[in-house]
Computed example of a mutant assay.
Amino acid sequence: MAQKKKIDPARKLVAENRKARFNYEIQDTVEAGIVLQGTEVKALRNGEANIAESYVSEEGGEIWLINSYIPEYLEANRFNHEPRRRRKLLLHKREMAKLAQAADREGMTLVPLKLYFNDRGRAKLEVAIGKGKKLHDKRETEKKRDWNRQKARLIREHG
């Protein structure tokens, strides 16, 4: 009897924008497909990518991922891709309209959160609609995080 090859859940995550949840108040998330070249997929499978400085923009009725970094795949030689090229995101029309409408609202931004492979092996990007936090909001988030850490430490020590 043939066994299915189990994929390590930690391996499926390629890149994460960890600062996004600190800098933005996340209101809604959408999963989007990405138009990639073959060498980009191979580089992603190596687990090398960076979406920390990237952003999502609506231009001409399409949604684009801009300034994301997928390094060149060394074995591709001259058939390689450009590391910081713009990548088109694949969404349903309703989702595109929803994201475009949210981006037009004052203070709202489209932020990439995670780049990962789904169960079928397709590269997906989790896009969030976020509102930029003010400095005092960031300080409050940091205080809550520190208090939760301290609380967990106390519970661990005193049982």
Rank of each mutant, 00 (worst) to 15 (best):
A128W: 01
E59C: 03
Q3I: 14
E62A: 11
R45A: 12
I51M: 02
I155A: 15
N50T: 03
R120C: 03
A10Q: 09
E48S: 10
I155G: 00
R149Y: 12
I26T: 04
R85G: 09
R78F: 07
Y69P: 00
R122Y: 06
G61W: 02
N118E: 06
R94H: 11
K134H: 13
K138L: 13
K114A: 08
R122Q: 10
G121C: 07
G159P: 01
A103G: 00
L125G: 00
L99N: 01
K143W: 12
H92E: 10
R139E: 13
Q150N: 12
I129F: 02
A32V: 02
R153D: 14
L154Y: 04
R139C: 08
E72A: 12
F22V: 12
G130P: 08
A43V: 09
Y55D: 12
L65H: 08
I34D: 04
E40K: 05
V14H: 01
P71Y: 01
K151V: 05
A152Y: 08
P83F: 00
E25G: 05
E53C: 02
V30C: 10
L65C: 05
K133W: 00
I66Y: 01
D8W: 08
R11M: 09
H136W: 13
K4T: 13
L44G: 07
A15R: 01
G61R: 01
G132E: 15
N23G: 01
D119S: 11
Q3A: 14
L113R: 08
E72P: 12
R45T: 12
Q101W: 07
V56C: 02
H158R: 14
A97N: 08
I70D: 02
E142R: 10
E58N: 13
Y69W: 05
K12T: 11
S68H: 04
T109L: 10
A123E: 10
A76H: 00
I129A: 01
A49E: 01
A2H: 10
E157I: 10
K143G: 12
N148D: 15
L89N: 04
E142M: 09
E58S: 15
E59I: 05
T109W: 10
Y55A: 11
D28M: 06
A15T: 01
R86I: 04
P83R: 01
L91T: 06
T141P: 00
R105D: 07
N148M: 15
K12N: 07
F117E: 08
K134F: 12
N118K: 04
S68Y: 02
R94A: 14
K6I: 15
N80Q: 13
F117K: 07
N50D: 14
K88N: 05
E126K: 11
I34R: 03
G132V: 13
G107D: 05
G61K: 04
I26C: 05
K19P: 00
E75V: 07
S68C: 14
N118W: 07
A100Y: 03
R94F: 09
D119F: 11
I26F: 02
Q101M: 09
G130E: 06
I129S: 03
I70R: 03
